[in-house]
Write a protein that binds this DNA or RNA. Sequence first.
DNA 1: CGGTATTAGTCTACACTGTAGACGACAAAG
DNA 2: CTTTGTCGTCTACAGTGTAGACTAATACCG
Lengths: 240, 240
Amino acid sequence: MAARDAGSGTVDEDRAGRTGRRGQRLNRNRLLETALHIVDQHGVDALTMRRIATELQVDPMTIYRHVKNKDALLDGVVEQLWSQVWPQGPDSEEWKAVLSHLGRGLRDVMMRHPSAGPLLLSRPVLPGSALVVLKHALDVVKDAGFTEQEAATIVRCVSSVALSDSALRVTYELPQRPHNASGEPDPEQLISLTQLLPPDTPPDLVRVAWTICPPLETDDDFGFTLDLIVAGAEHLRNRA
Amino acid sequence: MAARDAGSGTVDEDRAGRTGRRGQRLNRNRLLETALHIVDQHGVDALTMRRIATELQVDPMTIYRHVKNKDALLDGVVEQLWSQVWPQGPDSEEWKAVLSHLGRGLRDVMMRHPSAGPLLLSRPVLPGSALVVLKHALDVVKDAGFTEQEAATIVRCVSSVALSDSALRVTYELPQRPHNASGEPDPEQLISLTQLLPPDTPPDLVRVAWTICPPLETDDDFGFTLDLIVAGAEHLRNRA
DNA sequence: CGGTATTAGTCTACACTGTAGACGACAAAG
DNA sequence: CTTTGTCGTCTACAGTGTAGACTAATACCG
């Protein structure tokens, strides 16, 4: 609507005459970036074609030149997220290090983009960026003496846990407080948690929720989970 | 629309005069059941207030007497799904058995309701029905000599894997074939898989997708995953 | 039983969604 | 210059979730 008239002022300030206010023409990457940006700031439900369009100062229909439809756009965002986890860290030969790198990479993405969690989980799409990451992990684990099927199981295990475990805890994220090492609930946090649950939840079940989703997740916490899987994998190798 | 005029024919055939064609009045359970039913048959996207209403032969607005809004309805469906996994199986004292029961229970739900997978994962809600199940697992594991935090980690691990691992593979579900024990791709299935991926995926990455999501998941397959976690847990206990 | 309060169902209306289809502006190729 | 193809725009439409006012059915209490 207001996309054209303002642009007609000066012609040289932009790359070309009529194209979007921000100079450069729209392309898939810029599109997906702002889409992710909107999700981060206002949640998945706010991700509307029209909203992206206004953010980009462009007509809603323009988006369809770069993406088939909204589903494809969402898949693109997922692709974008996967591309943020780097296939190899330092120490990229040691299988344990690689698995832990994979797990932490996925978890980091989740923590950086909390409201994108549902997206990542609800569209179990395997874009190229995901496959690259998985391939490296798979290869290293195989080279460590596992069969291909074993390697697949292990890698699936790590990614599943990293993704859905993180998502669960990010969703129930509580107002973070100084850090309370004991397992005992801080009253204020307990109240917040209770309000997230169905209102008629009996106290002992609230307690269960508290145990499953403790408020602050330290890195060591997730390291513990990773150790568990790695230990399981090793045990599995030494038995045959 | 057509909900009233037909009812005025005979009064005694139904419980009461005007109430929904199917006799009984609408209640939350019947509502959630048909909602789930629609998801099963036509996918999450087909789950529309209006569609549920026609299925129930009721005005769309009636639904709002039993559920606050659509989000609450979706949460209700999730609750419904969790209530399908039974807290305790036979052998409900042995912690390994309980964990495996939990994992398989969740996986079974996923396989019974493939298109509800995204729902279950994208709304990481902890309804009462979930908390009951988790509580039992948590208690048994704790009694087996784990600390509360350890127990939480283990239970989270099992549920995460069962849920998201299953979801991934259900989504990429391939036309099932006789069962091909070797890891080698059946050509026809390979084609199907390739079509599910972005069209420009290079062959070696298609191969990765194949490895991560092998076509037929046998029970033993998942048992393998469960063993891994249980072994990891045990290792963890024996060390302190 | 009658009268009254509460609920369950209905109708209408509205703001908002994704997107098809026709059209204009521009760049590159001939 | 013309042609061709791409990118952005406009208009329009069917379908969505749901607020609000109205009506019929039930539950409750004397």
